[in-house]
């Protein structure tokens, strides 16, 4: 039998193109105690891209060291209430060595009655 000496080498290129998010994080960043990026590094990173929009909140939690939160959220909800909710939910997927980003949408429902 005749042996085939041919071999083929191909390269396949896949591209996924999307718009760069500014800043590259959403509303909240959960920073694990042993995460590769610390809260100050995260804050400074977004501060360069979106100055004065984020704040570090140090927390006493088993897995998280701090939360980096978009300041605008505090105008809608008091800090302590927001942090409690975030930790409650974030804690369910907590891990000391990871960083989690979260999108937080707050909707205020207002209903008023006035005299006619």
């Amino acid at each position: 039998m005749e042996k085939s000496l041919e071999s083929i080498k191909k390269a396949e290129i896949n591209m996924r193109i999307s718009e760069f998010e500014v800043p590259p994080m959403q509303d909240v960043l959960f920073v694990g105690k042993r995460a590769p990026i610390g809260p100050e590094a995260a804050r400074r990173m977004v501060d360069i891209l979106s100055p004065n929009q984020y704040e570090i909140v140090r927390v006493n939690h088993t897995a998280f060291e701090a939360l980096v939160i978009r300041k605008a959220l505090f105008t809608m909800l008091p800090e302590d209430k927001l942090v409690t909710i975030l930790l409650e939910e974030g804690g369910k997927v907590a891990n000391e060595s990871i960083i989690i980003k979260a999108q937080v949408n707050i909707t205020l429902l207002v209903s008023k009655a006035i005299d006619l």
């Binding site: 042993r34 995460a35 590769p36 990026i37 610390g38 809260p39 100050e40 590094a41 060595s97």
Partner: peptide
């Protein structure tokens, strides 16, 4: 010893 090597000094 305990900090991730990628972190910066201020975060450690």
């Amino acid at each position: 010893v305990k900090t991730h090597p990628n972190r910066i000094a201020i975060d450690a």
